[in-house]
Amino acid sequence: MRYIIITLLIFFITATSHALVIEDVRTYGPQKETADLRILSSTDIDVFDPVLTAYSGAFPTVSLEYVLSNTSDIYQEVRDGEKPFDLVMSSAMDLQMKLANDGFAKSVSLAETSQGPDWSQWQNKLFGFSLEPIGMVVSKSYFNNIKAPKSRRDLISFLRANQDDLRGKIVTYDVTQSGAGFLFATQDARQSDSYWRMAEVMGSLNTGLFSGSGEMLDAVNTGEILLAYNIIGSYAQKRSREQDNLLVIYPQDYTHMLLRTALVPRGTQNFEAARNFLTFLLNDVGQNFIEKRTDMLSLQSEVLNRNRQFKPIRLDTGLLVYLDRLKKQRFLEEWKEALFQ
């Protein structure tokens, strides 16, 4: 009994102490005290802004508030339900899946035309709305006259062969800090046995660990860093237009496609507005817009058909397993062992 009380107490403290860290806010449409539609999202405003502007143009009377935060804060916020948001979008598919499975998402019935492929939706609760390939970004100047690795095997042998050049010049996500990074790493571990080998090699090269991709890309651009592993394509592509030292590579053995997902939390105060936004996002017009006007890809993107290497991460209950206390603990331990040598 005392045991339970103590655990509850600990749970309570950690739960309440977990305040939502708001990184940025932008509003669209008419200004109101409380917006009609409040979106909590982990997608950079710059990346998602075209979609929000288009929506605001189509529904000018709706006042919209877009709140940016990180994936784990978003997850905790939805579980606690302290601030009422109407729509929650996140790149951490596993956390979103857990929210939906554990009953924190509301059912939303959408029109037939808004139904994506079956791997992109779960029940009527979790909706994938965009795809983004996860690749590596390298320094153009360094790979000017050196052949860049095309697959993970290439990468491993390349790292081994150029240890002196690359020591301290590689970066990837710190999976203990970044929810997206954790998802990419666990999917890698699941997909291929060579992942741990690669992690070992990266560890031996004193790989730098970051929690956001922005800093990593900046470092690659300056040439300070030569290779960033597991970077979301849309960020990289966008940066590479302004920063000309960036080269995005999608490994040919497999390139996972991240599915950004949205759900309507239980505590929504404007269900209809959320539904309307989801419909806009998922119907032909919205999907076309995402494909053509943003750096993200639509669910029916041609890229999927053109190339077998692109594999969407399926939205199913398998995603739950790496969130299991023991499995997560074991994974993080192994990861730390590999990367901190």
């Binding site: 397993v321 790496y322 074991r330």
Partner: peptide, 18 residues
């Protein structure tokens, strides 16, 4: 315990079950 991914994937495959 090392929870098997595919087992959980399969369990929800037919009816998108929780």
């Amino acid at each position: 315990l090392d929870l098997p991914y595919d087992t959980f994937s399969l369990l929800g495959a037919i009816g998108e079950d929780r």
